[in-house]
Write a protein that binds this DNA or RNA. Structure first.
Lengths: 252, 252
DNA sequence: CGCATACTTGAAATAGTTCAAAAGACGTGG
DNA sequence: CCACGTCTTTTGAACTATTTCAAGTATGCG
């Protein structure tokens, strides 16, 4: 168990190092974070609206969605978290949350106490910056989603989201031959792009029929990256990944 | 001139203190930040897509929009900044920006060098946390916009945005008798809620006809806060303002 | 006073929703 | 290993919120 915790923290460290530079001592401090692994059942909300959090959750394995709810009961997905993401790092500075974290598959997470994270930020300014930056990547994605949902038609929205997820998987080495794991139901995917499940289904059909990309139960196969990116008006810049994998990584 | 710079920094300090606690020394450090005031002409992009920033911009006076552009040339507004907001504080950790800052009215801003801000974060962990938290408020708003645009109909979207802006103005003491300054064109407002200018116009007309709220050239008058908030499914929680002013402040 | 920009209104077109029902996948227990 | 119930996906048809196109009316500026 100790071993898996170490490995999971290493995953997060890798992610931080994608965008920040940390000294040996600082890296060790990250790896030495106290943390408790937990298995989350599928369809379970492990953070609920209104909670006051004391821990941040690192996704080790699985797929997690951040859900917001409107008064009328409409669910909206505001963010998707993949392995290596610290889904609610921002709760360190804003512990009172108004959204839920929902496991879309059986997931493994690591709960890291806020106190330990705060402690690191106080001792190592570079770590504070790295955490802050990590949160800002999340915010950059959020901003992109606003444009995506607010200013593009249904096909473009879906194409863009697929490109984003593909690129994020690629960054953690989980994209192979144009295929990546994406075990999300069509209903949830619809919530993430602001569409009806029915219409989302038709959009997916079209992408499949035109041999651009196909989604099945738990993965997505991209046939034509260029067309997908072009339809989705996708530009990796906002993800701030150094060598963002484009078509090359997909066909490799 | 020195005097206005001081006053402007005090404005920002006030904003930080809304959500963070800082010692006397830390407050003084904020007030002692080097900064250069600048007047921005109306309709001018003072930060452009692709820029690599060296300064953050504090809005002292005016109304500023953060614009993103899709490949097809559609503009989308991703955030609105009011006096007291440090519009691009996040550029301290992510200097390479993929969006523009656009002055919607003649505005006064204060340019604060990243170097000075970074310096403070290294010397005072509490300031680093305060900055980080300030950015996360921005992100919380972004998340709210995603749900707003993705899961509500036109009237609700507009109503929600008006409630948000009203509440944010109230927090800086610029809401009087239910009226607040909002010098934004209908075309820009449409970009902020993901609607067509034409349809936005009809929505505004409806809000006016039903005596809920009326927008003119440069301000908004709210007649019926309860109905507006209810239509927009508005809940202040996400803004993390301690005593969020609701109907009381409006009728006061 | 005249030009430019913003706002307003109408009518036709359409993207996306809603409702409804069938078909396919999946796990469970017999 | 099959039968059953449940959940997800797929498809059709009618409907509607929003867009698009187009023209007219204000409003502000030089």
């Amino acid at each position: 168990m100790k071993r898996t915790v170490q490995a999971a923290l290493a995953l997060y460290l890798d992610r931080l190092l994608l965008r920040s530079t940390l000294s040996g001592e600082e890296r060790d401090a990250i790896l030495a974070l106290p943390a408790k692994a937990a298995e989350i059942e599928v369809e379970y909300d492990f953070v609920r609206v209104g909670d006051r959090l004391t821990h941040a959750c690192l996704i080790v394995d699985g797929l997690v969605g951040r859900f917001a709810q409107t008064r009328n009961g409409n669910r909206g997905i505001v963010a998707l978290y993949l392995p290596g993401d610290m889904a609610d790092l921002h709760s360190v500075v804003l512990p009172h949350v108004s959204w839920a974290l929902h496991a879309m598959t059986r997931s493994t997470i690591l709960r890291v106490p806020h106190s330990a994270l705060r402690d690191l930020t106080e001792r190592y300014p570079a770590i504070a910056t790295a955490f802050w930056r990590d949160c800002m990547i999340d915010a950059a994605i959020l901003a992109q989603w606003v444009v995506n949902i607010g200013r593009k038609d249904a096909v473009a929205r879906v194409a863009h989201l697929l490109c984003e997820i593909a690129t994020r998987y690629a960054a953690i080495g989980l994209l192979e031959d144009g295929r990546f794991a994406f075990p999300i139901t069509q209903a949830n995917l619809a919530d993430a792009v602001g569409l009806t499940p029915v219409h989302l289904n038709r959009v997916l059909k079209r992408l499949k029929d035109e041999r651009i990309a196909a989604k099945d139960q738990d993965s997505v196969m991209v046939f034509d990256w260029d067309r997908l990116a072009s339809i989705g008006e996708f530009d990796t810049a906002y993800l701030h990944i150094e060598n963002a994998p484009g078509p090359l990584a997909l066909t490799a």
